[in-house]
Design a protein around this nucleic acid. Sequence first.
DNA 1: CGGCTCCTTGAGAATGGTCAAGCTGCGTGG
DNA 2: CCACGCAGCTTGACCATTCTCAAGGAGCCG
Lengths: 242, 242
Amino acid sequence: MELAPLATRQCQDCPIRTRAVCSRCSDDELVALEEIKFYRTYPAGSTIVWAGDAMPFVASVVSGCASLTRSMADGRTQMVGLLLQSDFLGDPSRTEARFDVTAVSNVLLCHFDRERFARLTETNAHVRGRLLEMTLDELDAAREWMLLLGRKTAQEKVASLLVIFARRLGQQTPDGLQFDLPLTREAMANYLGLTLETVSRQVAVLRKTGAIRTQGARHMLVPDLDALLGASGDDDDGDVLA
Amino acid sequence: MELAPLATRQCQDCPIRTRAVCSRCSDDELVALEEIKFYRTYPAGSTIVWAGDAMPFVASVVSGCASLTRSMADGRTQMVGLLLQSDFLGDPSRTEARFDVTAVSNVLLCHFDRERFARLTETNAHVRGRLLEMTLDELDAAREWMLLLGRKTAQEKVASLLVIFARRLGQQTPDGLQFDLPLTREAMANYLGLTLETVSRQVAVLRKTGAIRTQGARHMLVPDLDALLGASGDDDDGDVLA
DNA sequence: CGGCTCCTTGAGAATGGTCAAGCTGCGTGG
DNA sequence: CCACGCAGCTTGACCATTCTCAAGGAGCCG
C-alpha cells in the first residue's frame, strides 16, 4: 500500500485526485494545499477523534473506511455516517468534533490544519464550491438513511445495506457481484438501528431465500441485484449513502 | 402578516435578514439578490414541490413551517427535514427535487431563480459561505436525528420533539414554556418513525407523569424543561434540528 | 345540526429485542 | 504442531414494545 513514503507524496499522483475536495483545483492551487497537508494512518479499530474533542484538522479519506457514530449516555450507539475513499471529514468552521470518528479498516487520511484550510476556503472558490457540493450530497444521503431508520423493516434494512456495498465494492463475476463486508455484524447493527442478533438472523433469511450466497460471515455473492433490491423496499433505485 | 405588498418588499426590512442565506451580504450585494428574488405564499397543506419534479428555484422560508418528506412505494413516509423561519430550501446545483416539500402551516417563501442563484454563488463569497455553513448545520441536525430514529424509544422520541418545539417556539410564562404544536399527530409520527396512535399514547403518558400539561391537542405547557429533557434521553443538551 | 378532520383509547398481534448457549476461525504460546 | 483463548457469529426461547385494527369522542365549519 505504501507506494511512496507518505511525506513525499505528490497531489498529482493521489488516488483520490479526481473525486476529493481538491478535485477542481488548478495546479497552482494544489501547491497551496500541498503546503498545509500531512498524511497519517490509523489502524483498524482505533479512534480518530472523540465527540466533543477539539478538532484541529479536517481531512480527506485516501483509503480505508471510517465511521461516524453518536452515542447516548447508557451506551446505545448509532452510526450516522460511513466515510469511504475520497470522502471528506470535518467542518472548517467548527472547532469541536460532534461525533466519534472510528477507523473501521486501516485508514489513510490526508489532513489539513483546520484554521488554515478555513482561511483557504475564503479565497479558493474551487475548494469551497466542491466542499459545498459534497456536503449537499451527504445531506441527501443522510436524509435517505432517515427513511431507512424510521420506516423500513429489519429485512429491508439489511438488504438495503448489502445493496450499497454490492454497488460500491462489488466485483462482477460470472456468478454475480462479489464483495467482502467491511463491517462486523455489530457495526452493521449500529448503522441500521438494529441488534447484532437481528442482523445475523436477517442475513440468514436472505441466504435461505436465495437473494445472497455467503462464504464465511463476511464474503458475499449477489447473484441478482434486482432480487436484492426488491427485498430492500427500494422500488426503483432511490440511491443511498454518500 | 402582509405588512407591505409582497412585490415591493425591501430586503432591508426582511424579518429573516440577519439569519437567512443572505445574512452576510453587503448592501450592494443585496441589490443583486433583490433583482432575482420573488415572493410566493403557499396555504397550509399544499405541496410546494414533488420529489422528482424539476426544481426551477431555491428559496428562503420567510415565515411558516414546511416539511421535507420521502416516501416508499407502498405509502410509508418519513419526514426528513423541517424548515422553519430563515431556513433554506433547495440545492443550487441540482435540477430535480429529491424530496416532497409540503407547507405544514401557511408559508411565505422568498424564491430565487435557481440558475441565476447558482451563478451568483460562483462570484458571491458571502452567499456561498453562508450556504455552506447552513448546509453543514443541517447535516449535523440530520445526523442527530438518525440517533433518535435508530435508537430512541417511543417515549424518548416524543419528548425529544417537544423539547425542540419548546426551545424554538416556546414563550416563557410564570407557569413555564408555552407553545402551539405546528404538527398534527400524524405529521409528528412521520417525523419520529412511529404511528400516530403511538404518538398519541406517549403524549398521554408525558401528561400523566407531569412532564407536560396540555390544553386541547395542540397547546402545550412545559413546566420544567429539564424534566422533559430527562424523558428525551438527552442527558446534557446534545442539540437537535437546524 | 350534520359532516368533516383530528385525536384518543382499547384489544390483540407481530416485529424485533433480550438473554443465553454454543459454534467457528484465527492467532498465540506451550 | 496442537491446544487454548478470544472475538465474532449463529441460533433458540421468551418477552416487550410498538403496530394494527377498530370504535368512538372533540372541535370546527358550513
